[in-house]
Design a protein around this nucleic acid. Sequence first.
DNA 1: ACCCAGGTGGCCC
DNA 2: GGGCCACATGGG
Length: 231
Amino acid sequence: MCRTLTALPVPSTYHPEKPKMFNNPLLKIYRLLYSHFGPQNWWPAQSAFEVIVGAVLTQNTSWRNVEKAIENLKRKNLLDPIKIHKAKRRTLLKLIKPVGYYNIKTERLKELVKFIVEKYDGDISLLKKKAGEELRNELLKVKGVGKETADSILLYALNKPFFVVDGYTKRMLARHHLLPEGNYDTIQEMFHKSLPRDVKIYNEYHALIVRLGKTYCQNRPKCPDCPIFHI
DNA sequence: ACCCAGGTGGCCC
DNA sequence: GGGCCACATGGG
């Protein structure tokens, strides 16, 4: 396990010899996970807008169920900001039913596409041009878009370097005594300070943490066969 | 029959 | 600011 520590997508602009990069457990964990699992190829979607829709639908919901809902929307040719904006709520509700919470998620989807259509003319490429911090604040004002959903959209739909913190992340950190006091922002900051500000790395790292959480340690605080047991 | 899933907002203190 | 709660389908 974890021998190929050099064959990693760490850009040349990154200087691990900097003093603050010594004793960097988050970087170490990333290398172990990447060595163990390899690239995860996230986010599974054919367009940026599909990522955005998926980010809302997957809230506290298994990805398997989200796939069904996305497939239903595609089948009705509705995977488009303008079309969802115009669509009737009961039409959307019926199609996204497999994800659960379909009443609130219909509302959340409507709110988000309303934001995209009214502020950005329904044009995702305009979203990509916006500065990350500014856009993050705008997204957080949309009802139903919390920090994790906002960061998922920024990172996986718009390729902006914002680390996504989720339940798996907190659990992993807690089990290795790395969970800081404080909220989402504190944890995200820790990742931002420990890693190069790089979309590719944030993309892989979050996906790897989810993979780890799904694969190992579901019911045990610690398991010796976990790829990051020794850190 | 439980428990969990790629969270969030509302309410209360 | 944190602690609870509802929201709901599908799979183990």
